[in-house]
Design a protein around this nucleic acid. Structure first.
Lengths: 355, 355
DNA sequence: CTGAAAGCGCTTACAG
DNA sequence: CTGAAAGCGCTTACAG
């Protein structure tokens, strides 16, 4: 690997001048610039990124705002871990990551945490835009202050975000439809179970449902899909009653579709109906769900690689700040089909990365 | 982030001494060492990896030996791309990657390329151990010369390799069994198609077959699995004749299992039998296979993330050389289920990484 | 046992 | 328009 110093010697100039040419800074005569460019190309010069980082000694702060996780719904644990991992890696490059969390069910905690976040004077922001209206207010502030921001996991459009990092929820629903169909026979019915209390993740969930239905429609399939909505998945008794009512009144149901991350709760309640309803498709590889999968109480889980999503949000924003390379408008994580047989080995910590 | 210089000031010593303590080099009195350690801990000091790399200015060469790919079997393209990607990233850290390829069907080309490889005086080697006996010879040389090496994609044990980067083939076969079962009804039969010409990848393929059979055995399923072996997948006529013979003589066959990366060839030949044999499970997301999947001629492909495998081989070996952190003995890539509906978007180039 | 100095490859004021 | 010098955070001979 040829260095700037060596190029400089070959061109009979100083390293500073070579640097100016490499970065198209002005203040170099066209003549010398051209001469240097030729030599650069000739020797296939590439800047040494780590020396560059060290010399630039710029400090950036990226602030992250995401829902906190709890026992009932630990979905947000994985993205946070991805963020922590990335945080470690970008540290040496002078990027500091500050994380703030809020309550998914409480929009004012969203606003409040955002205000805290602003105090860190971030040069970039990662946002899980849970509440539409409030997000409009927040992003307007960011736009005004000229702080670039990306959306994580929830795709809202028209807010001026640099990028969206997440999954294509419609497609993942569509895929679930396919898997369900492979399991079912022609005359079988399906039960889709919604949760009322999940309004904050409304976007993803409604897209999944649409995708699911679309699969059956597009392929001219005749399985009927019945919907029930449960007020609160955490209210064990009500859940049980609702499900039993549905299953008893519609005996043709052989598959259940739960378009949110709490299919394990449903799985708990249909143990008595296993023979009649052998198939259950849910979303997200949380610990509870994984356990239900391993225990054969869930057939398929669709995962969206939340660890990677968190990692990539930090990663792409860091690249943008450090090297001005804008990320793709959409960074879509792959739609993973997880079964008991290919569930990832968690002893092997995720480690896609360098450093 | 606190720096060595600052620590030194706090401890009233020179940066050199702090450095010695950080890396447990001797030549520091216990007293000062202890004092410095306290301060280090107190301030949660972490070395700046990039400054470290720059200062160490060590140069390492990693040499890679893998099969080249061709039109018939482009499997090895993806690992190579992963390697190239990693190569770019480790460059700034002073690691140079040299790639050598050989003909999978020709063991002497394996030896020859290895000899070329040795000339680069590598400090680490990535090997796809295609031929057992020859591999014994080569690895003995590496062991003698004290050059650490990892196996990529093919798991041989007892050769003294630092790590294996690849997939659990048995498990992936087992998973295929599950998927096949979900597609089939009770009385249906299965046809497994082997390729004689694929001896060099024998290990992975036989493990897949074993896993597949094991699924049916373990779950007490009664679907019969019939085997045929085709001399050469490339001989179109013979392939067609063999398959037709099997399908005609065993009308109960409803699913086909192809435990190698050329299921697309089989898919080409059963178009006339689609209604009778709707399900085909194959391996590896090569371009041809992907096309067959999109065209509904393959039901499931099991992918092993070959890009990542290549990337991680370089990545983990680099970490070992740079920081002496030994990789896990087995770095297993996830077993991906790919269908028409979740086939990755190739416009989005893979980019798990930083820099 | 310890420190001062030079250097890794680049960037950035500053001086001319 | 160009160069010389200092510095990023660390490591490494070398001197004492």
């Amino acid at each position: 690997m040829i260095t700037i110093k060596e190029i400089a010697k070959l061109a009979n100039v100083s390293p500073g001048t070579v640097d100016r040419v490499i970065h198209n800074r002005d203040g170099v005569s066209e003549k010398t610039a051209d001469r240097i460019k030729v030599i650069l190309k000739e020797h296939n010069f590439k800047v040494n990124r780590i020396a560059q980082s060290l010399a630039m000694k710029k400090k950036y702060t990226i602030a992250v705002l995401l829902p906190h996780y709890d026992e009932e719904d630990s979905f947000w644990k994985a993205p946070l871990e991805g963020i922590e991992k990335a945080k470690e890696e970008v540290r040496s490059f002078g990027v500091v990551v500050e994380t703030f969390s809020f309550d998914q069910k409480n929009s004012s905690s969203y606003i409040k945490s955002f205000e805290q976040l602003l105090k860190t004077k971030p040069q970039g922001v990662v946002l899980v835009p849970t509440f539409k209206q409030e997000t409009r207010r927040l992003t307007n502030i960011l736009l005004q202050e000229n702080i670039p921001f990306v959306f994580l996991n929830i795709a809202l459009s028209g807010y001026g975000n640099l990028s969206f990092i997440g999954q294509d929820s419609f497609k993942s629903g569509y895929l679930s439809g396919k898997l369900m169909q492979l399991c079912l026979n022609e005359g079988d019915d399906i039960l889709t179970i919604h949760s009322r209390s999940n309004l904050s993740n409304f976007n993803n969930i409604s897209q999944r449902t649409k995708g699911f239905d679309c699969y059956f429609k597009e392929n001219g399939l005749k399985n009927t899909n019945h919907y029930i909505e449960i007020e609160d998945f955490w209210d064990t008794k009500k859940v049980k009653v609702s499900i039993e009512m549905a299953l008893k009144s519609i005996p043709k149901i052989r598959g259940i579709f739960v378009p949110n991350s709490r299919s394990y709760i449903i799985a708990d309640h249909i143990n008595d109906y296993r023979d009649k309803v052998p198939f259950l498709i849910g979303f997200d590889l949380t610990e509870h769900n994984a356990q239900a999968l391993v225990d054969d109480r869930i057939t398929f889980l669709i995962s969206q690689k939340p660890f990677q999503q968190g990692y990539r949000a930090i990663n792409s924003l860091s690249k943008f700040l450090l090297y001005s390379t804008p990320p793709a408008t959409e960074i879509l994580s792959s739609i993973e089909i997880v079964t008991k047989e290919n569930i990832p080995d968690y002893r092997q910590k995720e480690h896609a990365i360098f450093l």
